[in-house]
């Protein structure tokens, strides 16, 4: 068994998924909804990058910035035109969820119409391969790991120590009470949407460069993020991180011994086990507010 390679593989996949699940978690923490349109945002940003960089020929850094601004704008619009209205009407979380799924389908089909369904590549060059013993990895993998760790640490810090982070926690716990204490929930919602879209956009770009773009590329990572947030336990970013590492490691080690088509089944199996045996998740917080 090529142990080193399996470890490296797991680290890469953990890093990819951490970005998605953490950004997904931030919205969940604030609004208490499963934000499905997140998958659309995740796919939208690499397509924007493709437009700026490959079609318009702008430089890579500028294009990435442009793509991230674009995806934040889209997230702002989603919040402003859909979720804000639903909140005003005191809609249930189920309504938010369905609206979000609708938004995802619209974004995904918009991408199909505007860019076509065939696979697109942002950087079509053979990446430089490095080796560490018998384990191999490429430049983009290194980048994914470094950026992922940095952003994860930053998110934890922001949520824990900054004013905005504490406001997110407060609004997530009780938006009415927090507005009595001088917090503007709407402002916090907008901020959470933009922040999480930005992280999802970065994840989409990194993974898009690694494995190319298709309009439906966001759905699978989103499913994994849902599983991770459920297993990790609601209301704990530490739980999310532990769940990501745990599930990905189980998946990769299991794939080594049984066929890889069972990967998703293993993840869902872990989630079911947790729901039955330890419904509060890794973090151990009660699950009563896990709606839908």
């Amino acid at each position: 068994m090529l142990v080193g390679q399996v470890i490296v593989n797991s680290v890469i996949v953990v890093s990819q998924l951490l970005l998605v699940s953490i950004s997904f978690y931030v919205i969940y923490r604030t609004l208490r909804i499963f934000h499905f349109a997140h998958a659309g945002l995740y796919a939208f940003s690499p397509y924007l990058l493709y437009t700026f960089h490959n079609i318009l020929g702008l430089n890579l850094v500028g294009s990435i910035l442009g793509a991230l601004i674009g995806v934040c704008l889209l997230a702002y619009l989603l919040n402003h035109f859909i979720h804000r209205h639903l909140r005003e009407k005191k809609a249930s979380t189920l309504v938010h969820l369905i609206a979000s799924m609708g938004a995802y389908l619209i974004i995904q089909n918009m991408i199909s119409i505007m860019w076509g369904d065939d696979t697109k590549a942002i950087i079509a060059c053979t990446p430089t391969t490095y080796s560490l013993g018998d384990a191999y990895f490429t430049t983009i993998h290194t980048l994914i790991v470094v950026i992922s760790i940095t952003l994860t640490v930053a998110t934890v810090m922001i949520l824990k120590y900054t004013k905005y982070g504490m406001q997110i926690t407060a609004v997530g716990e009780n938006s009415d009470l927090s507005s009595n204490l001088g917090i503007h929930p709407e402002r916090v919602y907008t901020l959470a949407f933009i922040f999480s879209a930005c992280v999802a956009g970065i994840a989409g770009i990194l993974i898009g460069i690694d494995t190319n773009l298709v309009p439906t590329m966001g759905f699978h990572p989103l499913m994994m993020a849902v599983i991770i947030v459920v297993v990790g336990g609601v209301g704990s970013i530490r739980g999310v991180i532990i769940a990501t590492i745990g599930i990905v490691t189980i998946q990769n080690v299991a794939t080594y011994f049984i066929a890889s088509q069972w990967q998703d089944l293993i993840a869902f199996g872990v989630m079911l086990l947790f729901l039955i045996i330890k419904p509060e998740g890794v973090s151990g917080k009660p699950v009563q507010d896990l709606k839908v």
Binding site: L2, Q5, V6, N9, I12, V13, T211, V214, T216, M217, H220, N252, T255, Y256, A259, S260, Q261, Q263, D264
Partner: peptide, 14 residues
């Protein structure tokens, strides 16, 4: 085997 639309082949490649 792998599912249609799979993008992660690292471990199976290993």
């Amino acid at each position: 085997g792998f599912e249609q639309n799979e993008t992660d082949f690292r471990t199976v490649a290993t």
